[in-house]
Design a binder for these strands. Structure first.
Lengths: 224, 224
DNA sequence: CTTTGAATGCGTATCCTACTGGTCGAGGAC
DNA sequence: GTCCTCGACCAGTAGGATACGCATTCAAAG
């Protein structure tokens, strides 16, 4: 689950980033409109958290640009102002939801979950494969009802794979789903996580296997 | 634009109906959960406005039923209660948005418009031939839904051929598609890949054959 | 203590080369 | 027109080099 956070106030950034990370989301951060445009042009995010007050303009102006470019990523606007006229503006410009500061973080999360559910509305909140089930919203994996404790990175790998059960996930795509834009990772860290995940899944009899396909990527299959 | 309004208070109903009608929306009205289920089962709506307080129960209970039945119609919850915990519940049950009474009608409209802007189906370019299908974007081949693990080079051959199913692909063109501009290859490497691919396709009953035409190139045909 | 990324060594799938046998078609002799 | 011969091209198999992925270990970071 990849989120782009567009916000300039440092303490807000670190607070949100920490909170989102705690919910196992991969967060990229842009401090300005310009930066945000750069990120968005290159990458696919599951959602965008967008502050209105940015150093180089009103965050709201970003949304029509996105939509015009065919980008349908859900956008959740954040703002200090909270009156109705503002909300209407925001939503009409193409934002998908609108949240006024100060807000309860719980509400932010809930709205985010709602947004994230929509594009992939076909699947329910919980994805299943083999004896595995994954509650995407609450970040819980379980095997035959037994909860399975998974570290953050492994969970991200599993989620990315389960979202496409039985279908290919390109190595590159998986990298992005797990590490975001952290190019700093130059090792076989991904392989490591896949490996660890594999072991846990087989030990716990998850009813699935992760196939690796050389030069292409990975593929999670059910062992029926 | 067809809206299902699930609400029991008469004056609310008439007010909303009039207002929505003024914005060129077609409104069906259900006064109870039971009635709503009936409507939903039969008709396709673009969105559902759902009150929580209904004579025969909490409106919220309708949402999981819908989702379980594969219905992905956007749901906008209406409620008198407006605290965060309630919102979280509503959104987690699968509602797409949540609005507390009293609300500004403008905001309702704006949120509704946001919901109705459904994300376009994700374009995944898949080519088909015989029982074969190839997801070009994800670099994945499958036969009758069963994923077929193909190494990189073979996949490239297959892609190049499937892009021109039933038509000739010149040997030279195929070389370039598979090896790029690597002139370093001076052997019959291409033939070996074609050979391996042939075997896999026939073993897995792909419903296609690769014909070789002397002095010209290759040609993928469906064996119908 | 758990989690994570880097580093290491091993095993093997993949890929190119090389070789062999097969097929096709052109051209000439009858 | 028919048949034969020859050469070019193609299909398939085998083998070795390489790169890739896997598992594991280790140290640092939270």
């Amino acid at each position: 689950m990849r989120i782009l956070l567009v916000e300039d106030e440092p303490e807000m950034v670190s607070a949100l980033r920490a909170a989102l990370k705690r919910h196992d989301m991969v967060v990229d951060h842009a401090g300005s409109l310009l930066e945000a445009e750069g990120f968005v042009a290159v990458d696919g995010y599951d959602a965008i958290l967008l502050d209105r007050q940015l150093p180089d303009g009103d965050g709201l102006t970003l949304v029509p640009k996105l939509r015009a470019a065919g980008n349908t990523t859900p956008v959740l606007m954040l703002t200090a102002r909270g009156d109705t006229a503002d909300k209407v503006d925001g939503l009409d410009m193409g934002a998908d939801d609108y949240l006024a500061k100060p807000f309860a973080f719980e509400e932010l999360l809930a709205r985010l979950r709602a947004l994230l559910r929509r594009p992939a509305a076909i699947e329910t909140q919980t994805i299943r494969a083999g004896h595995l089930s994954l509650d995407v919203g609450h970040r819980e994996a379980s095997i035959r009802g037994e909860p399975l404790a998974l570290p953050r990175r492994e969970l991200l790998v599993l989620e990315a794979l389960m979202r496409r059960t039985g279908r290919m996930v390109q190595r590159e795509a998986l990298m992005e789903a797990v590490f975001g834009l952290d190019d700093e990772i130059q090792s076989n860290a991904l392989d490591t996580h896949v490996s660890r995940l594999r072991r846990k899944l087989s030990e716990a009899d998850g009813g699935v296997v992760i196939n690796g396909i050389r030069g292409v990527g990975y593929l999670l299959r059910e062992t029926t």
